[in-house]
Amino acid sequence: HAATELTPEQAAALKPYDRIVITGRFNAIGDAVSAVSRRADEEGAASFYVVDTSEFGNSGNWRVVADVYKA
């Protein structure tokens, strides 16, 4: 099962156990969220919340930071 994305309210009520950072070329924010979901799932997380997204220069590469939560 894939890790689910939390709302800001849900994330605020929970304590993350880790923070992950992924970088890559994403065509849309949805693609980045899917990549975070896969990584969170690999780490055994039940859910995640994207904290920050930023573009690296003009290369089209993105850096996505997310907190991950157990259950």
Rank of each mutant, 00 (worst) to 15 (best):
G30M: 10
D18V: 09
D31M: 07
H1D: 07
L14M: 14
V21T: 09
D31I: 07
E42I: 10
H1P: 11
E42C: 12
R25M: 12
D52T: 10
G60R: 05
G60C: 07
S34E: 13
K70G: 09
T53G: 06
E5T: 04
D67P: 00
A40M: 04
A2I: 11
I22R: 00
T7N: 07
V64S: 00
G30H: 12
D18N: 14
V51E: 00
K70T: 08
R19M: 05
E55S: 10
L14S: 09
V51L: 07
A3W: 05
F48Y: 08
R19Q: 06
E9H: 07
A3T: 06
R63N: 06
G44K: 06
S34Q: 13
K15A: 07
D67W: 14
T4A: 05
R63D: 02
A71W: 14
F26V: 02
L14W: 07
R25G: 03
T4K: 14
D41R: 15
V33K: 13
G60I: 04
A46G: 12
D41M: 15
G44N: 06
E9A: 11
P16F: 04
I22H: 01
A3Q: 03
D31F: 09
V21S: 05
W62T: 04
V65Q: 02
A66K: 01
A28V: 09
S54G: 08
N58H: 14
T7K: 07
D31K: 04
N61P: 05
G44E: 05
A45D: 00
T53K: 09
V50C: 05
A66Y: 05
A28P: 04
V33F: 10
K70E: 09
I22K: 00
G44H: 06
K15H: 08
T4Q: 11
R25P: 09
D52I: 11
G44A: 03
F56E: 13
S59F: 09
N61C: 15
L6V: 01
V36W: 00
A71V: 10
D41Q: 15
F48P: 03
E9Y: 08
L6G: 05
D67S: 05
A12F: 07
A40G: 03
S37V: 09
A2F: 14
N61K: 09
S59T: 12
G44C: 08
E5D: 04
V65P: 00
D52N: 12
V21H: 04
A40Q: 03
L6I: 05
V50R: 01
A35I: 08
F26K: 02
F26M: 00
G57A: 07
G30Y: 10
G60Q: 06
V21K: 01
Y17Q: 01
Y17N: 02
L14D: 04
T23L: 11
Q10F: 05
A40E: 05
